[in-house]
Design a protein around this nucleic acid. Structure first.
Lengths: 187, 187
DNA sequence: GTCTATACCCGGATAGAC
DNA sequence: GTCTATCCGGGTATAGAC
């Protein structure tokens, strides 16, 4: 394979600093020099480990993106219950951690994600909404679907920030309840 | 006052193009040249009307920011009912239109807002959450407050996008219901 | 009030020594 | 594998003619 002594370290340390800075300042606003400084290193050193700034982001997003893709694919093989689907999105946000906040925000990041995703993120999102709204898809149902999906992300981020960065089981249950109520599943 | 023949036009046309581009590409990703091109003009011409790129954003955000400030101040003089407060946020998003999507996203925009706001936006947001969560403020109540607030913004944006850019009364009612359910107000 | 031309800075990325 | 030095492009902003 590649790399020898890098095995246990540098690459991960770079990703760690990048994650923190991206979350705090956003992707575009964070410079390679910022990351290097945080590490007590130089920009040239970073480029030994990553080909570009986008690659660093790619390294951080690879796993969450794979999870996301898996969720989407599950929609093609029979619709999951709303609770399942919303729960999956809560877990996705939890797994992505602080980084979830920069997705959907920075258009540059969105563009990069679109490149690495099988389908356009916009279409994919629409598919999720439709799955949550059910059929026939009334305008009210669409609004509720958007509401429920927004809850999973915003509430999960808030809970993790209020805690130690992790999502407790109790919090997860609370968030799922709120999302389901927003969806109006109990009617 | 200021300006003479500019009265009817150019300045507003600049703001219009900027609004559209900021909404589509984000603030940081949009260049002055982009705006000028859209207008069939040049960057130098823009700088006759606005002192800086940030000033253009400021022109677009002035009114929504004033509305926001008014909402916050209302919290100091007795707590409004959750429905009132959440409704105000739906209307705020509706008034801000597409531009609402770039706030809370681009950190550069956040920084600019912090400059033009009486208090730090982070603290202000916390005050809103507390008002929604009520007292005593349990962890679950905080999560629900975040959930409800997220609904107002996400659902309002989705509804406007699905419509003609405006928010109908029916949609507004639907969104408010979803937000209140997320808050668990009916318990 | 708008143009052409350009100054200036900053961020991403590379070259090449060590 | 990390350094110093530097290139290069692009973006904000300005100078000055018209």
């Amino acid at each position: 394979m590649v790399m020898a002594k890098d095995r246990h370290g540098t690459r991960q340390r770079i990703l760690g600093s990048a994650r923190e800075l991206f979350a705090r300042q956003g992707y575009t606003a964070t410079t390679i020099a910022d990351i290097a400084r945080e590490l007590g290193s130089t920009t040239a050193a970073l480029y030994y480990h990553f080909g570009s700034k986008a690659d660093i982001l790619g390294g951080l997003l690879a796993e969450p993106l794979a999870t996301y893709t898996r969720i989407i694919e599950s929609l093609d093989t029979g619709l999951p219950a709303p609770g399942e689907l919303l729960g999956a999105f809560i877990d996705l946000t939890a797994g992505t951690r602080e980084l979830a906040s920069i997705i959907d925000s920075d258009p540059t990041v969105l563009a990069m994600i679109d490149e690495r995703l099988p389908r356009k993120s916009r279409e994919v999102r629409q598919q999720v909404i439709t799955a949550l709204a059910g059929t026939p898809t009334s305008r009210a149902a669409l609004i509720r679907a958007h509401a429920a999906l927004a809850v999973t992300k915003a509430a999960a981020l808030a809970a993790m920030e209020a805690g130690d960065g992790r999502l407790t089981e109790a919090d997860r249950a609370e968030i799922l309840d709120a999302a389901l109520r927003a969806l109006g599943a109990g009617e």
